[in-house]
Design a protein around this nucleic acid. Structure first.
Length: 560
RNA sequence: GCCCUCGUAGUUCAACGGAUAGAACAUAGGUUUUCUAAACCUAGAAUAGAGGUUCGAUUCCUCUCGAGGGCACCA
């Protein structure tokens, strides 16, 4: 619909300006401003030096002439208004919203902008031997939601979890474990990392150990290492299942270390990299307005930067992607600029296809979370805590015992996902348990609840034998029909901008609109001839909510 | 020191350079013989400060103050 209106306007202003101005058509926040609104007259002011209201009126007349707001049966607009400083507000005829409702099926809202596009997306990226903390939960929520949104837009998406299974951090954990076998891997890491900074002897040992892990020539170390890797993987696998993420590729740092090193060594010969201090190989970022980073360290081992170069080619070897998206916390924004700048020279094709998205950090009120100091909140502990709250809440709701576990889990994950995805991707979330995860108002459960209510209504309609029908329609449609029709435009907006929160905001408003409708109208009512229409509308709402929640990684529930 | 983010009701978050700056929580009040009250309806309450660009600035530019992140061998 938005595209359609844009085209209509473009056609109508051809005589006004030589070049098409860059104007927008938006769904206005205030319903008094119509169903769609454009700023075209305001944008034109600069070009044609005319009063914007006058211009707006001219455009309005032209549109009316060719598309009619008059008596025509198939008129698109019921009203066109010029308002404020020169906006043109379009009011769409009810008929079009109702026609739209008739078309709704399970695929409603799907788009084809990304049809035949191959996208590979890295997210979650928890590190073996370390805790899976709430930052990973955040990364997973965002990555999963973007993946699903791209799929909804027609793309073929492969999910990658790139995991550190080698490198200094792993050495720190293994070293910690060697000192004290009774502590768990997270504790071992914290212990090793602490000693690395304060104890010169330990530092030396860890660096030595790091080399040995690379070389894999010490039986004792290999055994310990393999145990830890297995344990971590099993643990993560359970979590991913719970979160509803299924990775297509688990890629380990050890897979890409050697290829990455080779890329750097070859490019070094071409002069892309330089020699740094102590035998390091570095990339001089300053020449590109960035900073210098080390790609091969003085031990001759590839750093994260070199491995990332290897990773890009490794992924491309597995899947010939059109676009590669990497999601990390924004503390890595500067790092990625440098790494991608280096990649532009080592492999320009892949660099062009790669996009880094930095999301905000989940931080504790007292400061940054750090697995180095052991000051972390683990993903499981958060989920568990939320599940307990949900269990308390549904205790007296008369639900079947066998359903309870699933409901608790889905509501808890929904609440967590919502609280992460409700805000713009770039900004930090100050994590405060009581405030961050809510069950009332703007929240995951609010959306799930609205869906559940709709579902109950539909079940009741079925029992009473009332079927959806558009034979009898109301004299005037409500806000709900309009909200439903906006869905696919919001999908596009969220996908284009890599911002799931547009979807969250929309679904929240949609749920609110349905809840109001539900409060005002009795939907299943044999005595009311509009009942079949209302059932159809409820059905449409449920479909949109289900599809929308799917994109957020939040499951719907029949009962809650 | 240099480079990036960011600063909006009491709190947590919204707002392609556009209309009366929206929500939610919290606060105060109201709604259930009717399909799930995790709901609905009402009310009060905000752009850090100073300049500038613009028909129009929360949004762009400069400065000040404040917060976070990053700056050579961690990921």
């Amino acid at each position: 619909m938005k595209e359609k209106i844009k085209k209509i306007i473009e056609k109508s202003i051809k005589g006004f300006a030589k070049e098409m101005p860059d104007f927008s058509v938006e769904i206005p926040g205030d319903k008094n401003y119509g169903d769609y609104s454009t700023n075209v007259a305001l944008v034109l002011v600069k070009r044609i030096n005319k009063n914007p209201i006058e211009t707006a009126n001219l455009i309005k007349e032209k549109v009316e002439k060719s598309f009619g707001t008059a008596q025509d049966e198939n008129k698109l607009f019921s009203k066109i208004e010029v308002a404020g400083p020169g906006f043109i507000n379009f009011f769409i005829a009810d008929k079009f919203f109702i026609d739209n409702l008739k078309k709704i099926d399970d695929n409603f809202g799907k788009r084809n902008e990304l049809k035949n596009k191959k996208i590979i997306i890295d997210y979650t990226n928890a590190n073996l031997f370390k805790e899976f903390h709430i930052g990973h939960l955040m990364n997973n929520a965002i990555g999963e939601s973007l993946s699903r949104t791209f799929e909804f837009m027609g793309a073929e998406v492969k999910r990658v979890c790139y995991q550190s299974d080698i490198g200094l951090n792993v050495a720190k954990a293994v070293w910690g474990k060697m000192q004290n076998r009774t502590q768990n891997w997270g504790q071992a890491y914290a212990f090793g990392a602490g000693k690395y900074e304060t104890d010169e002897m330990a530092k030396k040992e860890i660096i030595e150990l790091n080399k040995k892990i690379y070389e894999r020539n010490d039986k004792e170390i290999n055994k310990l290492y393999d145990e830890g890797k297995k344990e971590s993987l099993k643990h993560f696998d359970e979590l991913y299942k719970k979160l509803g993420t299924k990775f297509d590729y688990l890629i380990f740092e050890s897979h890409v270390a050697t290829p990455g090193k080779k890329i750097v060594e070859q490019s070094f010969k071409k002069g892309i990299f330089e020699k740094g201090n102590n035998g390091t190989i570095i990339f001089k970022g300053e020449e590109h307005g960035l900073h210098t980073r080390v790609f091969i360290n003085s031990e001759g081992l590839p750093t994260y930067e070199a491995k990332d170069l290897g990773l890009a080619e490794f992924k491309y070897g597995k899947y010939k992607y059109d676009s590669s998206i990497i999601i990390t916390a924004n503390e890595q924004n500067e790092y990625f600029k440098v790494m991608l700048c280096a990649m532009e020279q080592t492999n320009p094709d892949l660099a062009k296809k790669t996009k880094h998205i930095g999301h905000g950090m989940l931080r504790l009120p007292e400061g940054k979370m750090s697995s180095r100091t052991g000051k972390v909140i683990t993903g499981e502990s958060l989920i568990e805590k939320v599940e307990k709250l949900v269990a308390e809440k549904i205790k007296d709701r008369g639900l079947l015992e066998k359903d309870k576990k699933g409901i608790i889990e889905k509501v808890a994950i929904g609440a967590i996902r919502y609280s992460i995805l409700k805000q713009s991707i770039g900004s930090d979330i100050v994590y405060n348990f009581d405030k961050s995860i809510s069950f009332e108002g703007d929240s995951g459960p609010y959306l799930q609840y609205a869906y559940t209510r709709a579902n109950s209504v539909l079940e009741k309609a079925k029992k009473e034998g009332i079927k959806s029908s558009f034979k009898k329609i109301p004299s005037e449609i409500s806000q709900l029909e309009k909200m439903i029709s906006y869905f696919s435009e919001i999908v596009l907006k969220a996908g284009e901008n890599y911002q799931p929160h547009y979807l969250v905001l929309y679904l929240t408003e949609l749920a609110g609109t349905f809840n109001s409708y539900y409060a005002k109208n009795k939907i299943v009512d044999k005595k009311n001839e509009l009942s079949p229409y209302r059932v159809a509308l409820t059905n449409a709402f449920a479909t949109v909510m289900k599809n929308g929640l799917w994109m957020l990684g939040i499951e719907t529930l029949e009962k809650m």
